[in-house]
């Protein structure tokens, strides 16, 4: 049944968020440290086990796949509820800080991609 998949997904998210919260408390930070990331790992591990033991039925999968397939609409709704006016009226300091941080970080993506790829010789596609 589809609800089994959605329930599994929800349990993974809750486990991740609670772990992230506890992790934050442990290091003395008032933020969720990697909760969603941990939830993703738990989901991957759980689905892997269910697949291997043959207990993952197609209807169960559909209860997870539905959520990933409405991901883009959810992101559109998220964009529509951002404080865009606040960003634009933030003044030159806010705009300069935001713009420069984005430019520098964009530029660093290829740099770090190169650093970590030690096992592949240079010039390899």
């Amino acid at each position: 049944m589809a609800i089994y998949g959605t329930a599994l997904l929800s349990v993974c998210l809750l486990v991740g968020l609670i772990t992230g919260k506890l992790l934050g408390m442990a290091i003395g930070v008032d933020a969720n440290v990697g909760g969603v990331g941990i939830a993703m790992l738990v989901l991957i591990l759980a689905c892997d086990r269910l697949h291997r033991s043959g207990r993952m039925q197609p209807p169960t999968e559909s209860g997870i796949v539905f959520w990933s397939s409405i991901y883009i609409p959810i992101v559109v709704a998220m964009a529509a509820s951002q404080n865009v006016r606040g960003a634009i009226t933030g003044g030159p300091v806010a705009i300069a800080a935001g713009v420069l941080a984005v430019i520098v970080c964009f530029a660093m993506v290829p740099m770090i991609s190169r650093i970590g790829r030690r096992d592949v010789p240079d010039g390899e596609p």
């Binding site: 997904l9 969603v36 989901l43 591990l45 689905c47 796949v65 959520w67 998220m78």
Partner: peptide, 20 residues
């Protein structure tokens, strides 16, 4: 719909089918 709750469940769902 675009709040943290829906966003996070959808993000986690995108990990379905990804290899560890």
């Amino acid at each position: 719909m675009g709040g943290a709750m829906f966003r996070d469940i959808a993000i986690v769902a995108t990990a379905f089918g990804v290899r560890l």
